[in-house]
Design a protein around this nucleic acid. Structure first.
Lengths: 253, 253
DNA sequence: CTGTTTTTGTTAATTTCGTAACATTAAGTT
DNA sequence: AACTTAATGTTACGAAATTAACAAAAACAG
């Protein structure tokens, strides 16, 4: 591999190396310091200093350079594992949903940080069709070869990692959904089930309208919360899944 | 964190732990052996043995447990890029395209293993709109906050990591594309530019029709190759980018 | 050109990881 | 119950990674 773009100014040669590293790591995965040093034709120490100077872009994991996004520790062996307090609750709520899923079903899966756990929990050998509109969901579904994936396209919204159609979307018309797994930012007995944006609410309503049944999947911490965009009443869900299992909406306070 | 699903049979408790680890790692990223041992309430050694026993699922990188999909640590939306050939040539071809891109442009970016390098090469501070239909492209674009992303939805096809619309898709009608960066599986002076499936060819043609200009980005190894689905003539591209830089189609043999 | 600053390279010391060897406990069997 | 087997825990040691400290080289300013 050749030295890329060798600018004359040595002041910002480090910058070039970081860019090269970022590119190499994103496209080919983790790279060992040893190899990086060899391919960039500098010492390991220089590579280490480069990486350490750009903690937003790169970091070490063992002796390997990786992208620094996400839950990975910042310093080499520092582990301030940002433990999502609700993660275990979300996981439990998703586990409770598994019995509802039958082979050959067509499922709608909502966006957010709850339902990825559902995808993970689905056994790899079940044949399903999953319709989604969130990038993180699609990314997980894709790893289960038995699942057919349909993605609703649109403009990307970073806050939810989701795509929302520009106008009226007709894609959903072509599908009959057995079960829609919905998530929410707020769940209130009186004010209903809410999310943050109206775009999102519109899409959620479309999905629920086309689904035979909808299940609300939410940990208890969401209960009592209210967000601006209302997309359903609590009674619209025949079942609600929380960390305590499945229950009927009238059992919720 | 509680012990998950404690089956009585100790014979396959290891299996349960591996499942738990896989879930934890997929949803929260790299996990340190130390933490895993603590949270599973077993010794580090046991965790190590579990990980070593399931090399298809988990592996170590430094002291951290990561998904073993081709050694890639899990980035937020990680689609581990399939084994890429001619990587350096593709990188060079993509670098040659950079001068064509102007701020505020709307670009169409094709699927495959070439154009991800283009996304990586785009500086983070350029404002752009990018229209794509491949999961791996979307995954990279999403990391550049200044770029607005439009995803064309549809049914997922694993061979290209792309979504193809069920029927006629009208999403593209709403956009005017300055520049379409196209990739191909085969490039032949006489037989034209080809890909493997007709679905893909249809979509490529739509994109090119709506773009002011189209650039073919391809390393030289594709030249002379022919695939079943033809989507353009070589002359349809005012510019062709290879590892040797930009050139006109008639300069190609 | 000279002195200063910055960048890079080298070495050594420290910490951490990974594994092997062995002890211990639990499960399964006759 | 006693034996066998498998799973887990503990300790110790070698290999590797990380840092610190210092030396060398290159850029920069006056």
């Amino acid at each position: 591999m050749s030295n890329p773009d060798p600018r004359e100014t040595p002041a910002a040669r480090s910058e070039t190396r970081v860019a090269w590293l970022r590119e190499a790591v994103t496209s080919s995965g983790p790279l060992h310091v040893r190899d990086a040093a060899e391919q960039l034709d500098v010492s390991e120490m220089t590579v280490r200093r480069d990486v350490r100077k750009s903690p937003e872009i790169l970091q070490f994991l063992g002796g390997h350079i990786v992208l620094s996004q996400e839950g990975a520790p910042r310093a080499p062996y520092d582990l301030s594992a940002a433990t999502d307090t609700n993660e275990e609750a979300k996981r439990a709520a998703c586990r409770a949903c598994l019995p509802l899923i039958k082979p050959e079903d067509t499922l709608f899966v909502d966006c957010g940080t709850t339902l990825p756990h559902l995808i993970n929990a689905i056994p790899s050998d079940v044949e399903l069709t999953i319709i989604c509109y969130a990038l993180n969901i699609a990314d997980l579904v894709v790893r289960k070869p038995k699942i057919k994936l349909v993605m609703l396209g649109g403009v990307y919204h970073p806050s939810t990692a989701s795509f929302y159609p520009a106008e009226e979307d007709t894609t959903l018309d072509a599908y009959a959904i057995n079960l829609a797994f919905m998530s929410a930012a707020g769940v209130d007995a009186r004010l209903g089930v809410t999310c943050t944006t109206f775009r999102e609410a519109t899409l959620k309503r479309s999905a629920m309208r086309r689904a035979a049944r909808s299940v609300l999947v939410s940990d208890r911490s969401k209960f009592g919360q209210v967000r601006p965009a209302r997309f359903a009443a609590l009674a619209d869900f025949p079942l609600i899944a929380t960390e305590e299992g499945l229950s009927a909406p009238d059992a919720m306070a």
